[in-house]
Write a protein that binds this DNA or RNA. Structure first.
Length: 469
RNA sequence: GCUCCCUUCGUCUAGUGGCCUAGGACGUCGGCCUCUCACGCCGAAAACAGGGGUUCAAGUCCCCUAGGGAGCGCCA
């Protein structure tokens, strides 16, 4: 039997980092076994669904490289099919029309709550002989067995038993005829031949209901694997107040696909002590055995660490290609400065995201903002002759190369009988405005002679003004 | 309230009855390297929720308690 998995998001907002992780698991599983991965848009809730959300889903899948073999299917395009199934169930008496008013249902629920009972539909319309008058448009309810129990074999939780007395007759078609979630998933999974359902464990409680529908339709059961949820740092459901929750935000913030997927895969799943996985390794290693049962807390620090790791290890050309759009989106003038590739190379070990690479490279392209504390500490009158001397040498040097510049800085330190750091650091602050930058020779080289001289002059003015007050 | 699920360092996790004086990773702290910031390297602190069993032996099996989460919609 070949494997078929699926990712069924509802287009009602952002593409949540938690749902994309289950998508990843489904994709990984299908890919490892040479199966099929299906994308299905669950848009039956027309009021909340939007094309914009669909676009976000599609863009997110593409960015993450989660390609699908079928789909996207849209449930709104399958209403005829659902209607057919509802009729079939009705004809077989496995479902029935319910004419209960919303008021009656609400009262029922309220009563059950005060009696400390689990709120359930009471089966009022289960065996109606004739259509009640009053003109209430009926819904269709599924006839759930009154007794017995369902046992669901789950790949991560083992056997989960649910007594049918805990379940009630759920609505499978609304009064306007549209199908509800439980019906559509089951029908779709059957029709699309889904063999493995990997989803969040918030669906554990839904599974027995779906199994009943599945069996009423005479279909074979798929294999279930309910994966733990991802929580925010306070242990609560991951939401916006914990930071970025939408996949595309991570892209905008300069995270690499490899890092994000690597991180997500390791939340709720492990393969021994391995932390770093290439996509192929992930594909080959992913299995249900490694899945965890308990919810995981999203840890941005670890994601950042992984991202930095990837930043350091991807081939230069790839990194540059990934960084370019970020440079272009920033306001700097790329034509007035070093080649982007050189800037990226200079920054890659000291940045955690692509956006940081760009921010730290601003000094190569635009004006600098002099860090007050750094200036105060390093641009003292005492270094004025040193910077003056370096300036002269900068003017005179033939080739503006890192090696030559390094030589100048070192020689100057010797001339003034100073430690290298005492010379390099003020120089750094002078030409970059900040006390942190790539090594001084590379920084100078990328800045270029003209810019270095300009900024050196600016720093000398600063020192002069400072001495005057 | 009812039902179901979950519980190893702050966090992600290894662990499938003896190899566990509980391992790895992030983070934190200390050190080395060093022109700064990083990278890298070395080291430290840090956990089996609690209580009962079962067993020669329990983080690992069972039960209870506590805590957390989810579901209980004409949402998905």
């Amino acid at each position: 039997m070949s494997v078929v998995t699926r990712f069924p998001p509802s287009p009602t907002g952002d593409l949540h980092i938690g749902s994309i992780r289950t998508a990843l698991f489904n994709w990984l599983y299908a890919r490892r076994l040479g199966g099929k991965f299906i994308l299905r848009i669950e848009d039956t809730d027309r009021g909340r669904s939007s094309q914009q959300s669909v676009d976000i889903i599609l863009a997110g899948m593409e960015w993450l490289g989660l390609d699908y073999d079928e789909g996207p299917y849209y449930q709104t395009q399958r209403f005829d099919r659902y209607g057919e199934v509802v009729e079939q169930l009705l004809a077989q008496d496995k479902a029935y029309r319910c004419y209960c008013s919303k008021e009656r249902l609400e009262k029922l629920r309220a009563d059950q709550m005060v009696r400390k009972l689990k709120p359930r539909y009471d089966g009022h319309c289960r065996s109606l002989d004739n259509v009640p008058t009053g003109g209430v448009a009926p819904v269709v309810r599924f006839r759930t067995p009154l007794d017995g129990a369902v046992v669901v074999a789950d790949k991560v939780h083992g056997h989960i038993t649910t007594s049918n007395t805990q379940l009630d007759d759920l609505v499978i078609a609304r009064s306007d005829g549209s199908p509800t979630y439980h019906l559509t998933v089951v029908v779709d999974d059957i029709d699309m031949g889904v063999t493995h359902i990997i989803r969040g464990d918030d669906h554990i409680n839904n599974t027995p209901r779906q199994v009943h529908i599945l069996e009423a339709l005479g279909a074979a059961r798929p294999i279930y694997a309910h994966v733990p949820m991802i929580n925010g740092s306070d242990g609560k459901k991951l939401s916006k107040r914990h930071g970025a929750v939408s996949v595309l935000e991570y892209r905008e913030q300069g995270f690499l696909v490899g890092a994000l997927t690597n991180y997500l895969a390791r939340l709720g799943w492990a393969h021994g002590d391995q932390e770093i996985f290439t996509r192929d390794e992930l594909k080959n290693a992913f299995d249900f055995e490694g899945l965890n049962k308990s919810a995981a807390t999203f840890d941005l620090d670890k994601l950042l660490w992984l991202n930095q790791h990837y930043l350091q290890n991807v081939p230069s050309a790839d990194l540059v290609a990934m960084a370019k759009p970020f440079f272009e989106a920033s306001k700097v003038r790329l034509d007035d400065g070093p080649d982007v590739a050189a800037a990226v190379e200079a920054q890659r070990t000291r940045a955690k995201t692509l956006t940081e690479i760009v921010e730290q490279s601003h000094m190569f392209y635009g004006d600098i903002i002099r860090d007050k504390n750094a200036a105060k500490k390093h641009l003292r009158p005492a270094v004025e002759p040193v910077l003056q001397k370096i300036r002269e040498k900068f003017v005179a040097v033939d080739t503006w190369s890192g090696a030559a510049l390094k030589d100048i800085v070192e020689q100057t330190a010797i001339e003034f009988n100073m430690k290298l750091g005492k010379v390099a650091q003020p120089l750094r602050v002078a030409v970059t405005g900040s006390s942190a930058s790539p090594s001084i020779d590379i920084t100078l080289e990328l800045l270029g002679r003209e810019r270095c001289l300009e900024r050196l002059d600016g720093a000398l003015v600063y020192i002069a003004e400072r001495a005057a007050t």
